[in-house]
Design a protein around this nucleic acid. Structure first.
Lengths: 232, 232
DNA sequence: TGACTAGGTGAGGGCTAATCATTATAACTG
DNA sequence: CAGTTATAATGATTAGCCCTCACCTAGTCA
């Protein structure tokens, strides 16, 4: 049974890789990149120190892999969520809330990403850049649809809007943590971001109905969450 | 002549400190924090390695000192510039342009600041936090004046606006560099930021929807309480 | 002059990431 | 099943870093 054997063999390797990756993630989250040692990661993964280097080229590659995971889930969930929502600003508000929630949840990972990943001189040719590109492509798509539908000014470059959106959100994440009550003010932050965008990118005559239904739908979504809780 | 002697003595010390600080700045800018070695910094400053530690507690203290300088100049110039300008949005546009220009000029310092400084867990009790606070106080002042004069909505928390402003600018800085022509698009970015703010914070629009959503949110909150009770 | 002291030195300690010669294990073959 | 090869795993070792500390030097003062 060579098939079965090679299967288990492959599985063993994947399990090991998983163990190392998970140990690394844990170590990075707990002690930061510099604070985490390869020795402790190897020990937590129950392998020898040298073994880690069979699976990952070096410490940085470990970090890359951890961040890769973060982005994969972030992107997937964003894409999924957007699909189930109609209306430009409803989608934007979902994206804002989703980004804030996820970044707050995984704050240490966000720190690692920003501090070690995003400011490298060769960022643009890095894998991380591609990951980010894929992620923000969802936002870009929503905006382009909005522009095509006339709900969004199309005389502002998309990259300006994008920086406005994610720049604000990342700063807001930090502020929410610094202020010590991230949960309570999350809604305020997400709504604030989209609200300013809504007014700032209004293509002309204000469409009050649009704005109102948006907020109503927002509340509906929250009520649906409550309903889901009740079911569980 | 004890006066003259102690003077020259003091001057010697200050010169040395200056030499070390300047060498450190150079090294950090050229090779990054990890890439710069204390040995090379000491050599560039023409002192022994141990001497550096007579002037700065450790490598991190060196970085702090470098960043301190950056903030001092940034803040001073911002304050000066704002004083010579009247009108809320004119001032904001100056601040945006000033921030962008300075950050682009000193990009490596900005990287150091963001990656090593701002995301420390104890950031809020650090000197860097105070520096940042002093800097953004200028922006806050401009906004508060604008609100008092009725040129700015006062129903959006100041911290949301601040995050919007500086978050966007920092992201824009990165984008401008990535796009490779920071000079040409700097105006576009600065104007874009302020333009969206201008429209987004225009106090002219109605606030009736605001009151209505507030009521609805009240109801939502009550329903969530009910849900919590039911869960228990 | 001789003791005192602030300031300066650089070899060495302790810790780290990463390597590589060696060993162990699995897979294949006749 | 035994022998051979290929793959996987090991951990002592290496090179390089930050920082300390025992020692040194040169001014200052009694």
């Amino acid at each position: 049974m060579p098939q079965a054997n090679s299967q288990t063999r492959r599985e063993r390797l994947e399990e090991r890789e998983e163990a190392i990756l998970s140990a690394a993630r844990q170590a990075f989250v707990e002690h930061g990149f510099d604070g985490a040692t390869m020795a402790s990661i190897a020990q937590a993964a129950e392998v020898a120190e040298g073994t880690v280097y069979l699976y990952f080229k070096n410490k940085n590659a470990l970090l890359d892999a951890v961040i890769d995971r973060f982005y994969q889930r972030l992107t997937e969930d964003a894409r999924e969520g957007v699909q189930g929502i109609h209306g430009t600003f409803e989608r934007l508000e979902f994206l804002a809330r989703h980004h804030l929630e996820r970044c707050l949840e995984e704050l240490p990972i966000l720190h690692l990403m920003i501090s070690r990943h995003r400011w490298k001189p060769d960022y643009r040719s890095s894998h991380g850049y591609e990951l980010n590109k894929t992620y923000v492509a969802i936002f870009d798509g929503v905006c382009r649809d909005g522009m095509a539908a006339g709900q969004l000014r199309d005389d502002v470059p998309l990259w300006v809007i994008r920086d406005q959106f994610y720049g604000t959100l990342d700063y807001a994440t930090r502020t929410l943590v610094l202020r010590g009550r991230p949960g309570k003010e999350l809604d305020l932050a997400a709504e604030g971001v989209v609200d300013i965008l809504r007014r700032g990118l209004d293509p002309g005559q204000s469409e009050r109905t649009e704005a109102e239904t948006s907020k109503l739908e927002n509340i509906t979504r929250r009520l649906e969450k409550v309903a889901a809780k009740l079911q569980a």
